[in-house]
Each structure stands twice: as C-alpha cells, then as structure tokens.
C-alpha cells in the first residue's frame, strides 16, 4: 500500500538535505577549482587553500589556541561547579545554574556590548586575547556545566560518595577519585561541545576582537567581504575540515553520555 501522501515525508527530507548540502558542496568545489565561474573544467587546485594559509594562518592558530584555553577554563570552572550543583540541588543552586545559562538566551551581541562597556577602557585587557576568551567561556560554560550535571544527576553520586567517605576519603579526595572518573562521559561530551562552539563562535567575537586578533570565523567574515569567491570558499573548506570531525566526535560523545543517562 504505497499511497502518494506517504512519499511527502521522504520528499521533504530529501529537499531539506539538498538545501543544506548543495551550498556546502558548492563551497568545497569552489575552494578547489582553478576558476569557479568556468567550472570544474578549469581544473582542480590547492592553490586557494595555500593562499588561505598564507593570509589567515594566524587566525586559524588563534582559534585553536582560544578553543583549548576556553576548554581549560570551562573545565576548571564548570566541573567542580556542576558537582556542587548536583550535590546541593537547592533553590540557590538552581538560580545560579539559570544565571550562568543566560548567555544561551541573551544574544551574543548584547553580551559583547555589556563586556565592552564595562571592560573596554582597560586597554591592556581589552586588546588581549584573554578578552575574547572571556566571551567564549561565557558562551560555552553552560554547555559544560549542563553536560557534566546531566551525567552526575543520573548516577547515585550521594551513595557512591558515602561509600568512599566510610572508607576514609575526605571531600577533595572523593572529588578526584569518585566524582571526576564517573563524570568522564559528561566531561568528554562537554569538552568536545566547548571546543566545537569556541572554534565557530562569531557573534561575541566580532565585537570583542581587535584588528590584531582575528579568530577563524572573524577571518571568514573578512574573506567573504573582501576576497575572491575561490579564496572565501577555500577558507570555508578549511573550516569544514576542522569543524566536521569535531562535530562527529561531539555527537558520538553526547550519545555515549546519553546512554549512561538511560
């Protein structure tokens, strides 16, 4: 029984796939062809990718550095906090969790304006990479906290800790021996999310960056505005090559953490 209306979902799915995939393929091809307007017949080349590296290597490296620094900071801030929130699920804890999740609701532009107005006059800080880092941490921190919190909430952390306490482990010891190892799936999923989001972050970064500190997406915006299509495409291709494996790893890690939850 194949009714025509049963083909609608398939058609919608395929159309959506085409809508998402076609421009990606276009940009990959454009970044690899000698001349996009003459098409593939003009030949394939890595020349544009090479030019991108020449022009934007510092942006790419800065983004990687920022992502790693962001990861370190979110780990230090987020993991202990998620533990404390998991163990004291009181009203104050909920308010704090809500509050740090605000950057998910409030647009990045507004947050960047807020940061600029408060810290813009401290030029040493304003012009350093740490200023951009603050923005990235602000935006990615809720993902780390939630990811760890979800895993900690799913295991019987209280009893495990009581078990360790009866064996002589103090609070700090229990955190290291029991909490962190059992939260690892959540930490891993959170870490990959943080790195992925940090590398792609634009809304805050565009406002916080300085001409000497351009991240990868800022460089992308720059290339879209001022470079020929092939270079812009090649740069986008470089971005895809970085982000897609991270995205795949992130989804894998999240699915793995999810399995613990169920």
């Amino acid at each position: 029984m194949r009714h025509p209306t049963r083909l609608i979902p398939l058609a919608v799915t395929l159309l959506a796939c085409a809508f998402l995939l076609v421009p990606i393929v276009q940009s990959v091809l454009a970044g690899l062809t000698v001349n996009y307007f003459r098409g593939l017949s003009s030949g394939l080349t890595l020349k544009w990718v090479g030019e991108v590296w020449g022009l934007y290597a510092s942006s790419i490296l800065l983004s990687i550095w920022l992502a790693l620094a962001c990861l370190a900071v979110t780990l230090v801030l987020g993991v202990p906090a998620a533990y404390a929130l998991a163990r004291r699920p009181g009203r104050a804890a909920r308010v704090l969790e809500e509050f740090i999740s605000l950057p998910l609701a409030v647009p990045g532009l507004a947050l960047a304006l807020a940061l600029l107005q408060l810290y813009g006059s401290y030029s040493g800080f304003r012009t350093s990479w740490a200023f951009i880092l603050v923005g990235h941490v602000l935006y990615t921190l809720p993902f780390m906290v939630r990811s760890v919190l979800a895993v900690l909430a799913a295991i019987d952390l209280k009893t495990l800790e009581e078990g360790a306490a009866t064996l002589g482990a103090g609070p700090a010891r229990r955190f290291v021996d029991i909490v962190v190892p059992n939260a690892l799936p959540g930490i891993l999923a959170g870490a990959l999310t943080v790195v992925t989001l940090s590398i792609g972050e634009f809304n805050l970064t565009w406002m916080l960056h300085t001409p000497y500190l351009k991240t990868l997406p800022v460089g992308l915006a720059d290339s879209y505005a001022s470079m020929r299509l092939e270079i812009a495409s090649a740069y986008t291709l470089v971005f895809f090559v970085m982000i897609v494996p991270l995205l795949v790893a992130m989804q894998w890690a999240s699915a793995r953490a999810q399995r613990i939850l169920s």
């Binding site: 202990p80 906090a81 404390a84 740090i100 409030v106 807020a114 408060l118 603050v134 602000l138 700090a172």
Partner: peptide, 27 residues
C-alpha cells in the same frame, strides 16, 4: 563537605559575577 561544595562553586560564581552579572547591570 559543605564548605568543600561551596569552594567548588566559588570559581564559577566569581566568573559569572565579574563577566556576566556586573556587565549586564552596566549594560
């Protein structure tokens, strides 16, 4: 244990205060 839990929240709370709460008030 109670003070250890509070200690765990201090870094996050300080960061949220300095880079989220006060900037938003400033905004």
């Amino acid at each position: 244990h109670r003070s250890f839990l509070l200690l765990c929240l201090v870094p996050l709370a300080s960061f949220a205060l300095a880079f989220l709460a006060i900037p938003l008030v400033r905004l």
